[in-house]
Amino acid sequence: MHRITVIGGGFAGLTAAITAAEAGAKVTLHEAHHTLGGRARTAEAPYRTNEGPHALYNGGPHWTWLHQRDLIGPLAPLPPLEAARLRLRHKGVLRRTPPFGMLKLLRRTARHAPVDVDFLTWATEQAGAEAARAAAHYSAVALFHHDPGSLSAAFVQERLRRATKLPPEAHYPRGGWATVIDRMAARAWNLGVRMETLSRVETVPEGRGPVIVATSLDAARHLLGDASLTWPSGRTALIDLAVRTRRGDAFAVSDLDAPGWLERFTAQDRTLAPAGEQLVQGQIPIAPHESRADGIARAEHLLDLAFDGWRERLTWRSEATANGRTGAVDLPGTCWRDRPAVDRGDGVYLAGDQVAAPGVLSEVSFNSALTAVSLALGRHGLNSLDLKHA
């Protein structure tokens, strides 16, 4: 029987542990925190916030994998009336529709964007400067980056299309992402995975079979002592707040004048806040020279536009900064294949959202986890990376 050690109990680590155990391996998982989940943790009641706005996209392979194992659980559907309350800030005011030129970039017949050109340059050639800037800023909902227009055109276009599909790909597990993590942990337990929390690993275990490091890239770099484990990511100011309910509040606000997004999560899931209150979560990407306060100030401006009287209605508030914890971003001339490789040699494998695997958001963690297990067990039939996702 193969023995595999998984370091990290987030989405990637649990995916790796379940996959390896299903293949017959004896798995031990170590998690430094007292609970599993990583960035997929959900805060305890009364305000069940995720670490930044979270949604589960149904267009990737992880959706089928989770669904087949009954790991998704009940979803919180967005009422049609609420969906109609999406607002876009453009030229300083709230609008219901995007600039006409931006729609040109969203058509299925739009030209496939190149890898080696930045998105703003390519999109400007396709639809003009105004539409290109608006599209770049809108894509921040799936990028968490302060300057999406400077990234690879192919990278941004894929995420823009996924984020604007109709019907929407984004779905919301009722009760937050913790419900998915709890189901994954239960399945891992039933498969015999040994899960040790409050178990910080300082050195790579030796003599206990392959090791899958499913941590942040920063943590993996320190653990493995490998300075090459770096890749660009985003830096984002996070704001969570609860306000007393008032009719007419927007469902979500996308800033087309600058990257930023606010969403009223209780629009689809009333269980996330006490009765009579609404839970709003937002992310405002900030540049390296900007402070969290700069991002929060921009978030408050969006709140002023879309949530009338929110300051007087405020019942709870929290702020944070996510630095290098928002997934990989690909600069012009690079793609997912150029990121740190899953196979690090000597029986050590990486999994997470900043390594060499395709997909959008959590799909990268999922695909890298399956690749790591496939390589660790020498069973390439386990590898779910289909070339159509490349």
Results as ranks from 00 to 15, higher is better:
T5L: 01
V6F: 07
A12V: 04
E22I: 05
L29F: 03
H30P: 11
T35E: 15
G38D: 11
Y47K: 00
T49Y: 08
P53R: 00
H54D: 09
T64A: 14
T64G: 03
D70R: 15
L71M: 01
L71Q: 00
L75D: 09
P77V: 04
P79I: 02
P80K: 01
A84H: 03
L86A: 08
L88W: 12
K91H: 15
P99M: 11
F100I: 13
L106N: 08
V115C: 07
A123F: 07
E125R: 12
G128C: 10
A132I: 05
R133S: 09
Y138E: 04
A140Q: 11
F144D: 07
H145K: 11
P148F: 07
S150G: 07
A154I: 06
F155D: 10
T164P: 10
K165C: 13
T179V: 10
T179P: 01
V180A: 07
I181R: 06
V193M: 10
R194N: 08
R194A: 13
L198H: 13
L198T: 08
V204Y: 13
P210Q: 02
A214Y: 10
A214E: 07
A219L: 12
A220P: 14
H222C: 04
L223P: 09
G225Y: 01
A227D: 13
T230E: 14
T236A: 12
A237E: 07
L238C: 07
I239Y: 05
D240P: 01
V243Y: 03
T245Q: 12
R247P: 08
G248I: 04
S254Q: 09
G260I: 04
W261H: 13
Q281S: 14
Q283C: 14
I284F: 09
E290L: 11
E290Y: 04
G295M: 08
D308E: 12
A322S: 06
N323I: 12
R325F: 01
G327R: 00
R337P: 03
R339F: 04
R344Y: 04
Y349T: 05
L350Y: 09
A351P: 05
A351W: 02
Q354C: 12
V360A: 12
S362G: 10
L385R: 15
